[in-house]
Design a protein around this nucleic acid. Structure first.
Lengths: 104, 104
DNA sequence: TTGACATATCGGGAATTCTAGATATAAAAT
DNA sequence: ATTTTATATCTAGAATTCCCGATATGTCAA
């Protein structure tokens, strides 16, 4: 993924907030994980509906924001049944910090 | 300066390139510094005209891009006579990397 | 297999960003 | 003083982004 697409993904207040909320999912999404069954773990993942409610934007908007952030590798997703869970891609976020530190 | 304004400044290819060009001014702007007199030093600074030529965009566009990047604290400027020199604000760029590493 | 629910995708109007040309300002040279 | 040069600001059209409602897709339950 190109660095500039990461910056584009980060240059919107809602998308930036989503990334920050997902840093402490249990704090910002109290009902998180309710649909993940035993044996399946996707720690830190929050479903689209919960993120949408918190963001206060339409379902379609939030869905495409999440998709955009995943393409930029800021998030990763896991589908369980009819739910899609998103969580931060920590490795990629740290790689961005390192990229800025050394090459920007 | 708000982090989001930094990301907005970085989410344009030309502006991103300007920042990268200024990392090695002598390489990308061979004629750089020609107007800085003895006793005045603004190491790494390049005047607007040189940056404009390299970018291949209009003078007004480049001028406002540079202004925007300075407001975001990615650049700093120094005026000498009719020339304005811009250079990277390294401290601020490193602060961004650190901000991403620890708080994003 | 039908209905309900979660998410994704499509189409479009509103808002913002991109970028140029025209003009203003400010300093230097004549 | 006038002209030239470098940069900044203003105005505006084109391009892009924002964000919604409508619709499609996929999954689960009855």
């Amino acid at each position: 993924m190109k660095t500039i697409d990461i910056f584009k993904a980060l240059s919107n207040e809602t998308r930036l907030n989503i990334l920050l909320w997902l840093k402490e999912p249990e704090k910002h999404f109290p009902a998180q994980g309710a649909h993940i069954p035993k044996g399946v773990s996707f720690v830190g993942g929050v479903c689209v509906g919960d993120i949408q409610e918190k963001a206060g934007l339409s379902q379609s908007t939030v869905s495409s924001y999440l998709n955009m952030m995943q393409k930029a590798e800021l998030l990763e997703s896991f589908r369980y049944g009819q739910w899609t869970y998103y969580r931060r891609n920590e490795a990629s976020i740290q790689a961005l910090a390192e990229e800025i530190r050394t090459h920007l």
